[in-house]
Computed example of a mutant assay.
Amino acid sequence: MTADTNLIIEEGPDRVVWRLNRPEARNAIDREMVRALHQACAAVEEEPRVVLLTGEGPAFAAGADIAQLRERRRDDALQGINSRIFDRIHRLPMPTVALVDGYALGGGAELAYACDFRIGTPHTKIGNPETDLGILAAAGAAWRLADLVGEPLAKEILLAGRVLSADEAQAVRLLNEVVEPDDLLAAGHRLADRITARAPLATRLTKAVFHAPRDAHPFVDELAQAVLFETADKHDRMTAFLNRRKQS
């Protein structure tokens, strides 16, 4: 395990756990946490693994650090401080799982939206109150949320400040699962077990093809399949499948 001031990292051979570590501030995302997340991304870009992302204490992430945010000006906004790290997380080669207990608001919600999966607890509250602070959700929610929950609900969250409960978020599949807080990390590992049991390169390329621009299909699908057709993993897994069928 390695620890940054604002991020605790637990390394594994096929997965890594990132713990946002500002519990005294409900894990509000500040510049130091963004820096630590960039470093963590670099490590899993070099050695692709599933990422489980959670928060220390009673919240996932209650948003951006408002004290820092209040002092930011035009040039800070144009740097995309949060949007660039969330986009980097979204583009990581292997799937990412947000484990959301308590509040995931503003930037915390956008961080969860950037992940491939989200597992919550009965205490989960997720939404985007940015317009109440005189700003907008500029780190992905304004365009990513509609893809996740549909335009009408996305507008209610973004424009009218609706905060979803765990049950509401699960009903629209924004949360893939809801478990008790004591089972949250284990639930993440169970999902990671299902992912890592599959062919790693096939998983990576499936995620890449899924997020490819629409006009890249079907060429990108065929190209990825051509790569996989040449792998030993494909041959071995199909041979094992055929042998099991013969024995059944």
Rank of each mutant, 00 (worst) to 15 (best):
E110T: 07
L37Y: 08
I85Q: 04
A61S: 15
L92P: 09
R31P: 01
G120L: 12
A25E: 14
A61G: 15
L53V: 06
A67S: 10
G80Y: 02
P23Y: 04
Q68S: 09
V100M: 14
H90C: 12
P48L: 04
R31L: 10
V100K: 11
A77V: 14
P58C: 05
I119D: 12
H38A: 04
R84F: 05
N82C: 05
D76H: 05
M94T: 08
R31K: 03
G108A: 15
L78Y: 10
R91T: 08
L99A: 10
P95Q: 07
M33A: 05
A61R: 11
L99Q: 06
Q79M: 09
P93Y: 01
Y103P: 11
V50C: 12
N27L: 03
A59R: 06
V34Q: 04
L92K: 05
H90A: 15
G80A: 04
D76L: 02
P23I: 04
I81P: 03
Q39K: 08
E47S: 12
E32L: 11
N21L: 07
F60Q: 08
P93N: 04
G107F: 10
D75L: 15
A42H: 02
A42C: 02
F117V: 05
E45H: 00
A64I: 07
A40H: 02
A25G: 02
F60H: 09
A25D: 11
V97R: 01
P95R: 08
R35W: 01
T121M: 10
G108D: 11
G106F: 12
L37C: 09
M94V: 01
V50M: 09
I66P: 06
R118G: 10
A42N: 06
L53I: 12
W18Q: 06
A77D: 11
A112V: 13
E71P: 02
A40W: 02
R49S: 09
F60G: 09
D75C: 11
M33F: 03
A109C: 15
R26C: 10
A42Y: 00
E110K: 03
Q68F: 08
R22C: 09
A104H: 10
L78D: 12
L69K: 02
L53Y: 06
A64S: 06
A40Y: 04
I119M: 11
G57C: 00
A25I: 03
D65N: 14
E24P: 00
A28D: 02
H38I: 05
E45D: 03
E32A: 13
I119S: 14
A67L: 09
I85C: 06
E46A: 15
D116F: 07
E71H: 13
A112G: 12
N82E: 13
H123S: 13
A104E: 12
P95A: 07
H90F: 13
R88W: 03
L105W: 05
N21T: 01
V34L: 00
Q39T: 08
R70T: 11
L53W: 08
A40D: 00
I89W: 08
H38G: 07
D75Q: 14
C41Q: 01
D116P: 10
A64N: 07
R31N: 06
A62V: 14
A59T: 01
I66N: 00
G120P: 14
A109L: 15
L111C: 12
R70S: 08
M33S: 01
